[in-house]
Design a protein around this nucleic acid. Structure first.
Lengths: 217, 217
DNA sequence: TTAAAAAATAGTATAAACCCTAATTTTAGT
DNA sequence: ACTAAAATTAGGGTTTATACTATTTTTTAA
């Protein structure tokens, strides 16, 4: 018998899971938590073999939950349920101790397979998830022309300014460091906003990091 | 018809492959190479759709071969055959442009599936290979409390504000979206600056992304 | 060498961000 | 129930960033 603990803040989704598991003889629902905090109450963790964990809970981040679960209770197996099929996200979760990662749009049958697999201590990942990871590996270091293509070329000076912006310098400070006037820095900054299609500093930094526009950053 | 080029220095193994492919109507062997050097002779590459490549050849390293193949002929698909099921090895090969990686001890049936999959431009990996990669990811810095530990906990509201900041919203817009006053947003923002140890918006975004403080971003 | 792109500068104005202090209301934990 | 933390709001003030338009000098590439 597989004792399972469901953690998800979407009640309807939990209900759906419940009805699925009720039909299975080998799966028993120990409890249902709508928030991450509830997981750590009482001796809940001792009763469950597996936690079916939605990682987008309102109170604590999924990664933190995994880490805490692993340190608190080494026995428990974590199967992550997520809506996000994004590489960095998946790898982070797996690093923090989960045994499986399935997308919420996977079918009933696959979910059951995942649970039974993870219950034995083995790992399980949706096919889509596996593909994402593999593609991530394959695209690394190879062709930086894919997503980067949209972005116009940035001049040397703009790059210097951008770097200093990301390092939290104000325009005034940048002017001092590059020995140019404040107005020039503003011009470069403005040109960066337009080239990167950003509305403000936040966008500038986000887009730069997302697209790895600066080598060293 | 899939035109295939076999590259392997083990004659007996090549013979085995040949007998397998002879039975298949949709697979045609273009040629067989016993060394890497032979691949680049004449117009061989133009005749083949797929290269079935053993990466442990005596003369050139498998990674170099892949890279050279990709730059010389963008059309060709590479399916790697290897005896080694080791993570670093596999990832390196995949980064250098191969579409698939199967172990030499896989069965006839799986090999054919792999070939037909790769022939359409899709990726294929043996189950064992996938598992190796996944395990590699899972065991990687499972204990990376390195720099991340310094960051204080962020409250739910702060996280929401932070997310909207990164999405280029102004405080005014955030106030509108969260149905709170501008002053409240400013308070959260200020608290974020202090918690993340940032000087301004640029730092806020950079630190958030560097430390993956937000799940979905 | 000549045109184009990049770099530098300036003024004026507005919008947004940031700082400080302070107070009230909600929410969560023992 | 009580306490601490979180969330909310406010006023007033300073600093930065962003938006325009416009000009000059330097570099770069055809």
């Amino acid at each position: 018998m597989i004792n399972i603990l469901i953690v998800d803040d979407h009640e309807m989704f939990v209900d759906g899971l419940e009805s699925i598991f009720d039909k299975e003889d080998d799966i028993n629902i120990v409890d249902k938590c709508l928030t991450a905090r509830e997981i750590f109450k009482e001796g809940l963790l001792d009763k469950a073999d597996i936690i079916l964990l939605d990682i987008n809970l309102p109170d604590i981040s999924g990664i933190d939950i995994c880490k805490r679960l692993i340190t608190k209770n080494k026995e428990i197996k974590i199967l992550v349920l997520s809506m996000y099929d994004e590489e960095s996200y998946i790898t982070e979760i797996l690093k923090s101790g989960a045994l499986g990662y399935v997308l919420k749009n996977t079918g009933r049958k696959e979910l059951l397979t995942a649970i039974r697999t993870v219950a034995t201590g083995k790992t399980y990942f949706s096919e889509a998830v596996t593909k994402t990871i593999m593609n991530g590996i394959m695209n690394k270091n190879r062709n930086d022309k894919t997503a980067k293509k949209e972005i116009p070329k940035i001049t040397r000076r703009e790059r210097e300014v951008l770097e200093l912006i990301i390092q939290e310098n104000t325009n005034q400070e940048i002017a001092g460091k590059l020995f140019i006037s404040l107005k020039t820095v503003e011009a470069h900054r403005s040109s960066l906003l337009s080239k990167l299609n950003a509305r403000n500093t936040a966008g500038l930094v986000r887009i730069t990091m997302e697209n790895k526009i600066l080598e060293n950053v």
